[in-house]
């Protein structure tokens, strides 16, 4: 009794919990993908807001553009600077008392999605911004000289190239998001880490936690390989890499 093997890798200790664990992992997957969709949308909007410039037009338009930019910067800085766990807790304990319609009746699952979306929108905005800024000035000049408006140029020329370039960091952020869903367990949402911990505390055997770890790895490892492939491809294209000159 008490060997490492039995403590972590006991099939008998996992089997009764298997269905619970799978259900928990399904919650984890939902938290991940739903938050991702909102965070991608919000991040793209924030990144574009942050790029707002008004070269022409009167003073009101310039001030307007400045305000939009400032709003995006404040949002991004605040949410980059806060721990996701704190955002989850603040929203969970405060929303029921706010009397804001719909929001004050949010379930833990919905609060989790809201909090993760808010935080990750800020992270993804910074990644999108890096991508937008990496597109050469000449691309914009060519598009505008053909008569495209600022908006058409952004949609057809700048953003498609920007998104392509930031695929590796976006996928990385996606992996981190999938792992951060476990933070939502703190407000009693039955994601996989939360239910595995519950199982452990009943039987005092860690194998359900191992099972949760395996589920995560089955999900994240292929993604990690894809990121590596992307980076390798970009490296070859730009002719970079480890350079050794003897």
């Amino acid at each position: 009794m008490g060997t490492i093997g039995e403590l972590f890798f006991s099939w008998d200790a996992v089997r009764p919990w298997l269905e619970t664990l799978f259900r928990g992992f399904w919650v984890t997957i939902q938290l991940t993908f739903i938050s991702l969709v909102f965070a991608l949308t919000g991040g793209m909007i924030l990144a574009v807001m942050r790029q707002t410039r008004s070269a022409r037009g009167g003073i009101p338009r310039r001030i307007g553009a400045g305000l939009v930019r400032l709003l995006a910067i404040v949002y991004i800085d605040v949410f980059r600077g806060l721990p996701a766990l704190l955002v989850i807790i603040i929203l969970y304990v405060s929303l029921p008392f706010t009397n804001i319609p719909v929001l004050d009746t949010f379930t833990g699952f919905q609060v989790g999605i809201l909090a993760l979306s808010l935080v990750y929108a800020a992270y993804l905005a910074e990644i999108f911004r890096a991508g937008i800024e990496s597109v050469e000035r000449g691309q914009v000049e060519a598009a505008r000289s053909l008569g495209m408006s600022n908006r058409q140029c952004l949609r057809k020329i700048v953003l498609p190239q920007a998104v392509r370039r930031v695929m590796p960091p976006l996928l990385n952020e996606f992996i981190i998001l999938s792992k951060d869903t476990s933070l939502v367990g703190v407000i009693a949402v039955s994601e996989v880490v939360y239910v595995a911990r519950g199982a452990q505390s009943v039987d005092l055997n860690s194998s359900p936690l191992t099972a949760a770890a395996v589920m995560f790895l089955v999900f994240t490892l292929p993604l990690i390989r894809i990121v590596d492939r992307y980076i390798e491809r970009d490296r070859r294209r730009s002719g970079g890499g480890t350079v050794v000159i003897r």
Partner: peptide, 19 residues
Amino acid sequence: NSLRSRMGMVFQSFNLFPH
């Protein structure tokens, strides 16, 4: 925008859309 489109411009660095 519409006045610009009445003039075509060719750049030193080509600036074709790579995507």
